[in-house]
Amino acid sequence: MTLTIAASLEKWINSFVDWLSQFTGVFNAISDGISSIANVFQWIFDLLPAWLFIVLVLGTTYFSKRHEKKYGLLTFELLGLLYIWVIGYWRDMTQTLTLVLTSCLIVYIIGIPLGIWMAKSNAVQLIVRPILDFMQTMPAFVYLIPAVAFFGIGTVPGAIASIIFAMPPTVRMTNLGIRQVPTDLVEAADSYGANGWQKLIKVQLPLARSTIMAGVSQSLMLALSMVVIASMIGTLGLGTQVYFAVGRNNAGAGFTAGLAIVILAIIIDRMSNTLQKKK
């Protein structure tokens, strides 16, 4: 009995995936879109010499944190990036960064409007919430299978899997942030004759800003956590190095590349935190 149910569920999903694969045109278009975004990021990173990149990161940190303690972080960024450069993982690092930024860009383009829509309509919230739960709790590996089926191997399916995995926090926190705007402020906007757009731009988004930004930086972290998994389907980057090291049972190489990921994660996290705190 249980066996037949499992078997038929499996069959349905497989035939659904098969059915989807007739829309090659759509998937090609998506694929082209994502890879052109990724290419632009990669092109910029390849154009920047490593030293200039390091200077830009340090400069951005310095200016965004001018009113707080920053020298510890600046030292960490300098040493960390130098480490990545010196051990020869610079290009892998930029590939990883490309994957993270491409996925997150798309996450924000879809996620923030979706979160706004969810906040404005209880019906949408009712429908979207379980989908988000599903997206977040389904083991990320599983997304790789259809991603490969529709988009082949390489950066694009990796980005797709990252997008699905990293989307929920942005949507959720946008929804939450807007719903948490004090009622009397919303009433004030309404009572003075704000239309929906004015209310959103002038009242709800500014007041939800720090909550939305928390979601934005969580999505960044989740996308980064996908890099090793994505390397299994041929997405190049630091994850690839880790994945190879696992294959060769080389603990040293694994940790060397893993450390580079940790450094990148900490830098991205600290830099995105300033987005939240700023008034």
Binding site: P182, A188, Y192, N195
Partner: peptide, 19 residues
């Protein structure tokens, strides 16, 4: 919306000023 803009204003218990 037009009507609210032209005819009525509201003052709230907890002020409801935009921070």
């Amino acid at each position: 919306i037009e009507f609210r803009r032209e005819k009525m204003s509201m003052v709230f218990q907890n002020f409801a000023l935009l921070p």
